[in-house]
């Protein structure tokens, strides 16, 4: 299973405009595993992840999902193929209630019973959301908003979830809790690909880690091995 990654962006080259940001960059995640992209500012971490989601033009390489080539699909079409994406900012409907946020996440589904079921699962995963289900999402705290954002993406029952810096701007305690939940989500068989600023903690929970520099792969290994690698520690984890 580990040999055929569930989602892989292979040798991706491209950018938003005429300038290439990614250079022959490869990112992959296996079924039910957590893969983390780390690296210095401006290394193209988010860009690499967005490339797998079809948010920029690739001039080279391809993206495969479960053995199918999805390189040409739009982000919306990829959502229907089973990819969930949580943007870094503006990732909730602030004027709508928590429950409506989840409902909107399930917009492409029309099995009403199934939707209720998924919603229950999400409330089980994030109990605080059940308490605040009728409150406007914009009124919640930073950590709770991230839970809404992740919950919204989970509503489509994705097979792979992309998270863009899910812990940006939340306190360390909340961050630990969020990581715990992410591990829980991965245990249900959903693959997780995330970009993280807090490299050490993220690699700690990662099955696979990618260290990017200037849009290219620098180091790729298991999270554990990367944490142990002295060069990675020196250059990217602050010693």
């Amino acid at each position: 299973m580990a040999d055929t990654p569930f989602l892989i962006g292979e040798n991706m080259t491209g950018g938003y405009g005429p300038v290439d940001i990614l250079h022959n960059c490869t990112i992959a995640v296996n079924k039910g595993e957590i893969a983390v992209i780390v690296g210095p500012n401006g290394a193209g971490k988010s860009t690499a992840m967005k490339a797998t989601f079809g948010m920029l033009n690739l001039r080279g390489g391809r993206v495969m999902l479960d053995g199918e080539d999805i390189t040409k699909l739009s982000p919306q079409a990829r959502v229907r193929k089973g990819m969930g994406f949580v943007p870094q900012t503006h990732n909730i409907f602030t004027g709508m209630t928590v429950e409506e946020n989840l409902e909107m996440g399930a917009f492409i589904r029309d099995d009403e019973v199934g939707i209720k079921e998924t919603m229950e699962q999400i409330y089980g995963l994030f109990p605080i959301l059940r308490q605040k289900r009728y409150q406007a999402a914009g009124e919640l705290s930073g950590g709770q908003r991230q839970q809404v954002a992740v919950g919204r993406a989970l509503m489509t029952k994705p097979s792979v979830l992309l998270l863009d810096e899910p812990t940006a701007g939340v306190s360390p305690i909340v961050m630990d809790e969020l990581f715990d939940r992410i591990i829980e989500i991965a245990r249900t068989g959903i693959s997780i690909l995330m970009v993280e600023q807090n490299a050490r903690q993220a690699l700690d929970i990662a099955d696979k880690g990618y260290v990017l520099v200037q849009g290219a792969n620098r180091f790729t290994d298991t999270g554990e091995a990367l944490l142990a690698d002295p060069e990675v520690r020196r250059s990217f984890l602050g010693g």
Partner: peptide, 18 residues
């Protein structure tokens, strides 16, 4: 609701398949 969602956050509404 999809109208409200679109008005609230267009990009996210598109991501949600609206």
């Amino acid at each position: 609701k999809s109208m409200r969602a679109f008005s609230d956050n267009e990009d996210l509404a598109l991501l949600s398949g609206i």
